[in-house]
C-alpha cells in the first residue's frame, strides 16, 4: 500500500445557519487504499464529501485532494474524482449508455474513448445487456450498479462512494464489494460511506468515525480493532489436549505475554504482539498436543460501539 496521502483535510469546518455540521475535521487517506467514513445519520459525512469536491464551501479549514485545494481548484479535483451520491439520479428517458456518454462528454473524452470506456464499465458492473434500455425501466439495484459505472467511466484516480450498496440484494452487494475492493489494484483510491459495518470491515483498510461533525477516531482497521477489544493487545486463544498449571506458567514467562487465563482446555493469552509461533513452540516443547490456536477476531461492531458508548 502506498504511503502517499492523496486526500487530507485540515480543520475542515462547515456551519449551516449557525449549527456546526462538520467541526475541525482532520482525515487522511493514503493512495490506493479503501477508506471507510462511518458515523450515524447526520454526522456530517455527506457534507464533508461535498466540501471535498468543492460543491460546498467550508466555513474554515481546507481540504486537499491530490494536492489541489478543493475549494479553489475544484475543477481539477473533480477531473480526478468520481462521486456517487447517496441519492443518485439519472435521466430516466435516456438509456444507460446515453447517460454514461453524457458524463464522458462532460469529462472531455473523445467519442471513441468514451465508447470504449462505457463498454468496459458496463461490463464490470454487469449491465452490458441493459446498455440500451431506458433507465426508467431499471430496478433500484440496476440503477445502483449503473451509478458505480457512472463513477468509473471518467477513469478516476479517487472515487467517493456514498452508500454504494444501498438497495441491493445480497448477491448484488457482494458483486459491488468485490468490484470496490479491486479498485486499488487499478490505481484508484476509494473513500466509502456506509452504515453496514460488516461491509466496511470486509473491504476497508482504514476508517474514520464521525459523530456530530467531529472525528472520533481514525486509523487502520486492524489497529483500531485490537484497540477496541483488548486495549491495543492481541488476544490469542489456544486449545490444547491438557492445560496444566505448569503450561500456564511457562507461557506466562514468554517475553511479551501479559496475561494467561486457563478455562478448561482453553488458554486465553493476552500479548503485545502476535506471539503465536513462540506459544505453539512452548506448548509442544512441554509435550502437550496443540489442537488449535487463533488470534481472536474483532468486529467493527466492537469498535463502533466502543466509540459511541464513550461519546
Amino acid at each position: 500500500m502506498g504511503k502517499n496521502i492523496v486526500l487530507e483535510t485540515r480543520d475542515l469546518t462547515k456551519k449551516y445557519d449557525g449549527t456546526t455540521v462538520v467541526d475541525h475535521l482532520n482525515i487522511h487517506v493514503a493512495e490506493n487504499e479503501v477508506f471507510g467514513l462511518l458515523g450515524p445519520n447526520g454526522a456530517g459525512k455527506t457534507t464533508t464529501i461535498l466540501m471535498l469536491l468543492g460543491l460546498t464551501e467550508p466555513a474554515s479549514g481546507s481540504a486537499r485532494v491530490f494536492g489541489f485545494d478543493s475549494t479553489r481548484e475544484s475543477l481539477k479535483v473533480k477531473r480526478l474524482t468520481g462521486y456517487l451520491p447517496e441519492r443518485l439520479g439519472f435521466y430516466e428517458n435516456l438509456t444507460a449508455r446515453q447517460n454514461l456518454r453524457f458524463i464522458a462528454w462532460l469529462n472531455n473524452m473523445s467519442d471513441e474513448e468514451a465508447e470504449r470506456q462505457i463498454d468496459q464499465v458496463l461490463e464490470e458492473v454487469g449491465l452490458v445487456e441493459k446498455a440500451d434500455t431506458a433507465v426508467r425501466k431499471f430496478s433500484r439495484g440496476m440503477k445502483q450498479r449503473l451509478g458505480i459505472a457512472d463513477v468509473l467511466v471518467k477513469k478516476p484516480r479517487l472515487v467517493i462512494l456514498d452508500e454504494p450498496t444501498a438497495g441491493l440484494d445480497p448477491e448484488g452487494i457482494n458483486q459491488i464489494l468485490d468490484l470496490i475492493a479491486g479498485l486499488p489494484k487499478m490505481d484508484t483510491t476509494v473513500v466509502m460511506c456506509s452504515h453496514r459495518l460488516y461491509e466496511v470491515q470486509r473491504i476497508c483498510h482504514s476508517i474514520a468515525i464521525l459523530a456530530n461533525g467531529k472525528l472520533m477516531v481514525e486509523g487502520a482497521l486492524d489497529d483500531l480493532g485490537r484497540d477496541a477489544l483488548a486495549g491495543g493487545r492481541y488476544r490469542i486463544e489456544v486449545e490444547t489436549a491438557e492445560a496444566s498449571p505448569q503450561l500456564v506458567e511457562i507461557i506466562g514467562k514468554i517475553k511479551g505475554v501479559n496475561n494467561v487465563e486457563a478455562e478448561g482446555n482453553f488458554l486465553h493469552v493476552t500479548t503485545d504482539s502476535d506471539l503465536r509461533a513462540a506459544i505453539s513452540k512452548a506448548v509442544v516443547d512441554n509435550g502437550v498436543a496443540l489442537i488449535q490456536m487463533k488470534v481472536q477476531e474483532f468486529s467493527l461492531d466492537d469498535i463502533y460501539k466502543r466509540y459511541f458508548q464513550e461519546g
Binding site: 460543491l55 475543477l75 477531473r79 439520479g89 435521466y91 458524463i103 462532460l106 469529462n107
Partner: peptide, 17 residues
Amino acid sequence: NERSTGTLNRILSQPIY
C-alpha cells in the same frame, strides 16, 4: 427538476464550471 431527480448533483460533480 434536475435537483429533485438528483441529476444536478451528478452533473455538478463533473469537471465543469
